[in-house]
């Protein structure tokens, strides 16, 4: 297999199918994401968005189809998960910080224990990341003592500490108080501006309009339509998209 080059899609899904028991959750999903692109996935809950985004870093094994990340096939039992997951960062709706470790330790753990990097170098990087997500002074605070928005920013920093090429965000503001949603969006916006490739599942239509290169609307396991934010949000062609947008806007 030829080495991946940045002019090829960084992420490529082809006809991805996934079932949980009898119910088919993904029914043939295909799309491509180029390096530096930001794409948003929207759609009603239960339409398979989480399953889709989790399949990209092999948290959810798929039944058929192909997913490649920088040329590496993910749908392969022998996939090198370490290589894949250091390329792909993921942030969850529920933050999932490790509650028994401080903010700084949460960020440092994986680079030290997984990537076996030098502790002092990792610590310097972790402190820089804390500043980047605007949490100076919270280094030694435990997750339980942080607000939702602060926890989510630590979670983003924790992912970034692995120096990923691609970031996956699964409804990362859905569990937050309205006041703290903004601070998390600011962090993501900065990342996107710096050229990080991002795939976001989101219900924040205003945010999607602002940062997305493309929006994908999914329903019942298929991509109903996709296009630029203006095309999808302002001039949807499909009835299902229109119905969904009417509900959320």
């Amino acid at each position: 297999m030829a080495a991946w080059t940045p002019d090829q899609p960084m992420v490529r899904l082809r006809d991805v199918h996934k079932s949980f028991g009898q119910s088919e959750v993904l029914k043939g999903i295909s799309f491509e994401v180029m390096k530096g692109e930001v794409i948003c996935i929207i759609g009603p809950s239960g339409s398979g968005k989480s399953t889709l985004i989790r399949s990209i870093n092999a948290l959810v094994p798929i039944n058929s189809g192909s997913i490649t990340v920088e040329g590496q096939e993910v749908n392969d039992p022998a996939v090198d998960k370490l290589a894949l997951r250091r390329k792909v960062g993921m942030v969850f709706q529920q933050y999932n910080l490790f509650p028994h470790r401080t903010a700084l330790q949460n960020i440092m753990m994986a680079p030290i224990h997984v990537l076996k990097q030098d502790r002092s170098e990792v610590e310097a990087r972790a402190r820089a990341l804390i500043r980047k997500v605007r949490l100076e002074g919270k280094e030694d605070t435990y997750p339980g003592e942080l607000s939702g928005g602060q926890q989510q920013r630590v979670a983003i920093a924790r992912s970034l500490a692995m120096r990923p090429d691609l970031m996956l965000f699964d409804e990362v503001t859905a569990a937050l108080d309205p006041e703290t949603v903004k601070e998390v969006l600011v962090t993501i916006r900065e990342l996107a501006r710096e050229g990080m490739t991002c795939i976001l599942v989101t219900h924040e239509m205003g945010f999607a309009r602002e940062i997305a290169n493309r929006i994908y609307f999914t329903d019942q396991g298929v991509i109903v339509e996709h296009g630029s934010p203006q095309e999808i949000l302002d001039h949807p062609r499909e009835a299902r998209t229109k119905a969904f947008l009417e509900q959320v806007l």
Partner: peptide, 11 residues
């Protein structure tokens, strides 16, 4: 979620 977060960080 703890397992998933750890998985996604390649632990």
């Amino acid at each position: 979620g703890q397992w998933e977060a750890a998985d996604s960080l390649a632990f």
